[in-house]
Design a protein around this nucleic acid. Sequence first.
RNA 1: GCCCCCAUCGUCUAGUGGCCUAGGACACCACCCUUUCAAGGUGGCGGCACGGGUUCGAAUCCCGUUGGGGGUGCCA
Length: 476
Amino acid sequence: MPDVPRFRFAPSPTGMFHVGGARTALHNWALARRLGGTFVLRIEDTDAARNRPEWTQGIIDALAWIGISSDDSHFEGPHFQSEYAAAHLEAAQRLFDAGCAYYCDLTGDEVQQRAKELGVSGYGAWSRDRGLGPGPGRVLRFRVPGGTTVVHDLVRGDVSFDNAAIEDFVLVRGNGAPVFLLANVVDDIEMGITHVVRAEEHLPNTPKQQMLWEALGHEPPVWAHVPVLVNEQRKKLSKRRDKVALEQYRDEGYLPEAMVNYLMTLGWTPPGAEERGSEIASWAEMEGAFRLEDVNTSPAFFDIKKLAAFNGEYIRALSLDEFVRLAEAELPDDWDRDRFAAIAPHIQQRLTTLKEVPGVVDFLFLPDGADVAIDDASWAKAFQPDWAVPLLSDVIDAYGSVEWTADALKTALEQVMETYDIKLGKAQAPVRVAATGRSVGPPLFESLEVLGRGETLRRLRVAHERAAGAGAAGGG
RNA sequence: GCCCCCAUCGUCUAGUGGCCUAGGACACCACCCUUUCAAGGUGGCGGCACGGGUUCGAAUCCCGUUGGGGGUGCCA
């Protein structure tokens, strides 16, 4: 009778959720669901400094954001490593009783000192046969057996380690607290974990953990080590130097679906991507096809540019209603929602992130009577041609009585520009800068329609006055 | 130092001995479209790290070199 596969995701709270962690969580999640198994969340909070409730909540929230939540029947947890402290110590005792571990009274400094004097590397197993019992300050070390440990890894195949190169590692600290290696294995055994899917950086730990599983009388789980995510310098993504917090991307207006899709493409290709000419795929498609055996073995560069491209695609794919709803969350409270809804369809296809929304429409939400902030470079270019000022003057006249719709506004400008024998692309420039302050932005006539006749005319007049004045001063 | 992993366009990848004069995506460039900017369309640039084998045949298998990364804690 085959057991239900049990995967686990075991982050330690650090105050932010690493994108690399998000990816391995996604891998575990996809497998747990596709195989009808369970995704077990365990918070590794043994280190007292990492035991902050708000940090734990941060992990739960981050997981929920990428679609991994306790609402789903495949989700189990959160469990807390600290709750298994008794089991850790009990396991340590069993290991000692069975002769698989021994006590050692050398401090870290002493070990280093001796290694240096004797010219050996690592711990020299000095206390192996001293028959020491437990005592204050004494650590419990694992007695690494001879031979070779072979790790069967779903991503990498068989990886073998010569046990002679593995030192007798510490299981329990001098203060009686178990270390990660032991706690991790004991927890996995206690929770009936069958698959350990994690990042490659843990591969060197694996032979040690496998020996522990065996010494504790259990079959090791299925191992899988996915490649690490790296930065431009090809170094592992780190909290210190790289932008790795999932929360930060969320706050910058990335959609969770885009983030999830992008993360899954690192080291793996969604089904049919080549035929479709696109790596964009739904979670259902990816979940249905994801296999560890298909995951690449080399490190992947976390490319924000590509993430941004994915995000743009996802924003464009939103229904208008959904887009408006999400975009409104980025707007200042006092901005008129109806006014935003009117311009929304014209900006949706021009965005990379939701965070950009206020910046592209802010000219529509100025306080009464306030002048637009004019971008100097845009102004200089728009009013460079001789025809700019007279054209603006004509536009002001025409816009005084034209029907106030985008189409009519466009037609009116087209009539005006004929006199000057210029194309719309050029003719719209002075009007755009006058009304919006910038040379780029949402489609002009649609923007003016939303702005309204009164305010549009006011801004055009202010600009005309300024441009005409400058022209006169410059000419004289 | 020691242990382990990795090596296809700038980047992410497809490729598991002949379908590869190596395919797709992002980025970049050009053109088209166009109401600025995007989006969209078309096209382009660009890669199997190197050296030996094995084989009728190698991006694919083996060995070596070089390069990169990870780990080497009484952190997790």
